[in-house]
């Protein structure tokens, strides 16, 4: 069980929101250094799944395991320490608006990891440098571009030394000319061996990155497999049909899938 032992695993997640079955018995697992890409139409349940994976949304039933041990969502300590180890990137950045870029990265280091201000500053500067924003450390979210905000959010998550990162459409809220800088950071992360589950509509980008595509529809995983396999010429997959539809609409697709 050593080679294949997953870092993060979900078994039988079920979630009902407002009377809708949003997740219908979803199971998945991800091994160290792997990249899995979640695709599927808007409303498929990708965001809900990602937030169930770090228990920001408590599933109605099902289990989440980190490195083989089940997380008890009722144990607050365990829950907080678990979330620390699972980095999360949101579509709309969710930076802390009253804090500079530096403080956005530093605040959890000091409050959660109890680092000294000096150590936290050093670490925060290192992470901002890693995403190419060392010179923007003093700026506030109101004065950063969308791409820069998302990179600060990535630096903020990385500073917690996560074992796995969940990225929920990290470029969907960005103007087209700003998408590239964020994708470049994500590519660097993947190449550096970060374990990631990424929901995105950037098909060609993620095909070059993903070990596996997971296609979701109406709260279920409908298909999964390597991008090469699912997108192969002549393949008759739902994934391929969906991707064809997206690339047909490039540009508009991005706006349409915002929510």
């Amino acid at each position: 069980m050593s080679e294949s032992s997953p870092i993060l695993e979900a078994r039988g997640l079920v979630k009902t929101l407002g009377g809708n079955r949003v997740l219908e018995n979803v199971s998945l697992n991800i091994g160290r250094g792997r990249v899995k890409v979640l695709i599927g139409p808007s409303g498929a349940g990708k965001s809900t799944l990602l937030q169930c994976l770090n228990l920001l949304i408590p599933p109605d039933s099902g289990r989440v395991l980190l490195e083989g041990s089940e997380i008890d969502a009722r144990n607050r300590r365990e829950l907080c320490s678990f979330r620390q180890q699972v980095g999360m990137i949101f579509q709309d950045f969710n930076l802390f608006d009253h804090l500079s870029a530096l403080d956005n990265v530093r605040v959890a280091l000091m409050k959660v990891r109890r680092m000294s201000k000096l150590d936290a500053t050093e670490r925060a500067v290192a992470e901002l440098t890693r995403v190419g924003l060392a010179d923007k450390a003093a700026l506030y979210p109101a004065n950063l571009s969308g791409g820069q905000k998302q990179r600060v959010a990535i630096a903020r998550a990385l500073a917690m030394d996560p074992k796995v990162m969940l990225l929920d459409e990290p470029t969907s809220a960005l103007d087209p000319e700003l998408i590239g800088e964020v994708l470049a950071v994500i590519r660097d992360l993947a190449q550096g061996g970060m374990t990631m589950i990424l929901a995105t509509h950037q098909i060609s980008f993620s095909a070059g990155l993903a070990d596996e595509f997971i296609f979701m529809e109406r709260g279920r995983i409908v298909e999964q497999g390597s991008p090469a396999e699912l997108l192969a010429k002549g393949a008759n997959s739902r994934t391929k049909a969906f991707c064809a539809k997206i690339s047909e609409l490039t540009g508009e697709a991005d706006a349409e899938f915002r929510q």
């Binding site: 920001l56 980095g87 949101f90 969710n94 608006d97 605040v107």
Partner: peptide, 27 residues
């Protein structure tokens, strides 16, 4: 203050109380 910021704070491992005192209240 948008709920998203609380979610982001909790995703970093903050408790609800920490999220409220260091993220929501100052704003």
């Amino acid at each position: 203050i948008k709920r998203g910021q609380i979610r982001a704070a909790m995703a970093l491992g903050m408790t609800t109380r920490q999220a409220v005192t260091s993220v929501v209240l100052p704003q």
